[in-house]
């Protein structure tokens, strides 16, 4: 997904929701039939998600007798069982994931944007070389750098710590993504704006923070949204950088405890629902920016 940004947009395009009206054509299929077909196809497509949602609210008996039925005897017992586990899987996992995501993204945004502003005002050849170096970060499989990263963190005394995980997030391929999004936006800012501020006596740091950052707010939204989602859903790095003893993010926590023993459907769907509901809710609230960000890079 990250390489979506190798050809960043000059400006964010209003995508899907706000986009141009689709073409008109003589309708060969009646509108209602088409809509019903579309609903059936998409419902079938997302049926695993549908199953998770409805079965999280059904008693075990109803799940086994008809998994696809809506909750006729709705119950919250699956959710309360999930939340009252003695290992506090969900509470601890969600807390640790929130900490990791918030710290990583709060560091990545200023670092990524200041870096992008700095190099977008440099000579083209230097800029091209550094951007090529960063582009590699989008392509390198995380398995290639995992073992040395753990070595480096061990040398610094940061192995099995959240600080270590956060720093490796900030320095890893996520930074490449942030820089590519920001550079695309910053190239579109006229040189005169920066020059005018300089003549007025503002320094680089001030120009970046007071003038550039407000102008690239859509880029910041894209970077924040996607990096939050990816870091939240990351599995490999927390699994090996934190290790099994240091508390878990939500993804590694699920893997290490749900995989361990058999549980009934109700418990499993209850846990999956609660573990997945935060990113899904975030997506539903911010879907406009989400899709604008995703499509901005792919339809230059």
């Amino acid at each position: 997904m990250t390489t979506a940004q190798t050809s960043p947009p000059a400006v964010a395009r209003p995508a899907l929701a706000a986009g141009r009206a689709p073409h008109r054509r003589a309708p060969r299929v009646p509108g209602t039939a088409r809509l019903i077909a579309a609903i059936l196809v998409i419902l079938a497509f997302v049926s695993p998600i549908y199953l998770t949602v409805v079965n999280a609210f059904k008693p075990e008996r109803d799940i086994v007798s008809d998994p696809a039925a809506p909750p006729i005897h709705p119950t919250l017992s699956n959710l309360s069982t999930a939340l009252s586990r003695p290992d506090h899987l969900l509470q601890l996992g969600l807390r640790n994931s929130v900490i990791t995501v918030v710290c990583s993204v709060l560091l990545l945004i200023p670092l990524g944007s200041a870096f992008s502003f700095y190099i977008s005002r440099r000579r083209t050849r230097l800029r091209a070389a550094i951007l090529a170096l960063l582009a590699a970060g989008l392509m390198i499989p995380p398995q290639v750098v995992l073992l040395p990263t753990i070595h480096i963190l061990t040398l610094a005394g940061l192995d099995h710590t959240y600080l270590g995980l956060i720093l490796s997030n900030v320095g890893g391929g996520y930074l490449s993504f942030a820089v590519f999004v920001y550079v695309g936006f910053m190239r579109a800012i006229p040189e005169e704006i920066v020059e005018a501020a300089r003549i007025d006596g503002a320094g680089g740091l001030r120009i970046w923070w007071k003038i550039i950052m407000p102008l690239v707010r859509p880029a910041t939204a894209t970077v924040a949204i996607f990096l939050s989602l990816w870091i939240w859903n990351d599995f490999l790095n927390p699994l090996f950088i934190l290790g099994p003893l240091q508390g878990q993010t939500i993804t590694t926590g699920l893997y290490l405890s749900v995989g361990q023993f058999q549980m009934n459907y109700g418990q499993l769907f209850g846990i999956m629902f609660l573990a997945g509901v935060i990113p899904v809710a975030g997506y539903l609230v911010m879907q406009k920016q989400f899709i604008a960000g995703l499509t901005a890079g792919s339809t230059k």
Binding site: P110, L111, G112, A114, F115, F117, Y118, I119, I130, L133, L134, A136, G137, I140, V144, V145, L147, P148, T149, I152, L167, S168, V170, G171, G172, G173, L175, S176, V179, A202, G203, G204, L205, R206, W208
Partner: peptide
């Protein structure tokens, strides 16, 4: 003033070198 900006940019590059370039 440029030094501040340069410092942040250098930090970013340094982290990238430590966690991507050196590991490779």
């Amino acid at each position: 003033n440029d030094l501040g900006l340069r410092l942040i940019a250098a930090t970013a590059l340094l982290l990238y070198v430590i966690f991507i370039v050196v590991p490779v």
